[in-house]
């Protein structure tokens, strides 16, 4: 059993702890997604927008657990937070507001254009909105600047899709770890 657990954590690449009924479960974002574990910070609507948006930007992000990963990091202490946003001039105290503002604006944009939430958009519809988010034309948006939010979310999704041992393997790059990431975040 212990061996299986180590193997599981090793293969998960990144892991997180989630509190369910007072118990701390340590699982990977991918497994948390598969098991539909509850969220600590994000609302159901925010999660739906995040998953649809991230999946359109980096295919595989939803299954890799991007929403659980971001949710977990937003609930962490500043020095434990691993989001790339910490490099980009946004104070840690504003992280939740940054994601909330971006997700609410993205969700509203989808409803305004297509009367649909992000997960229900077709590939073409999602592409239309992503182009608008990165374009120069004014859009209905009151969160962080849309291109910046896109950049950050793309980086987060790239982390969970490509930044793990499984992600390296997926694109044919040897991981060659000195110390494998085998602990909970």
């Amino acid at each position: 059993m212990q061996h299986d657990r180590r193997k599981f954590l090793k293969s998960s690449g990144i892991a997180l702890s989630v509190i369910v009924s007072g118990e701390i479960l340590r699982v990977s974002p991918r497994s948390a997604q598969a098991a539909a574990l509850p969220y600590q910070v994000l609302t159901e609507e925010e999660v739906a927008t995040l998953q649809g948006l991230a999946e359109a930007i980096v295919p595989g992000a939803r299954e890799a657990g991007v929403s659980h990963y971001i949710d977990k990091q937003l609930g962490a202490a500043a020095e434990d937070c691993l989001l790339m946003l910490k490099y980009l001039g946004v104070p840690f105290a504003d992280f939740i507001g940054f994601y909330r503002g971006g997700l609410h604006s993205a969700g509203r944009l989808a409803r305004l254009r297509f009367s649909l939430p992000w997960p229900a958009l077709s590939a073409d519809q999602a592409q239309t909105l992503l182009v608008e988010m990165n374009g120069d034309t004014d859009i209905e948006w009151d969160g962080p600047p849309a291109p910046f939010f896109f950049f950050v979310l793309r980086a987060d999704a790239s982390d969970v899709v490509y930044g793990t041992e499984q992600g390296f393997d997926q694109i044919g790059m040897p991981y060659m770890a000195h110390i494998e990431p085998a602990q909970a975040w």
Binding site: I57, V58, P59, M84, Y87, R154, A155, D159, G163, M173
Partner: peptide
């Protein structure tokens, strides 16, 4: 190079996304 992070492969072309990103990542990785 590594695939992710600020100086990682994915961020060298922030204009690429969707299916094209995966194609790019597989080519760039090698």
């Amino acid at each position: 190079l590594k695939p992710n992070d600020l100086l990682g492969i994915a961020n060298t072309r922030p204009d690429i996304y969707g299916a094209a990103l995966d194609d790019f990542m597989r080519k760039a990785a090698t």
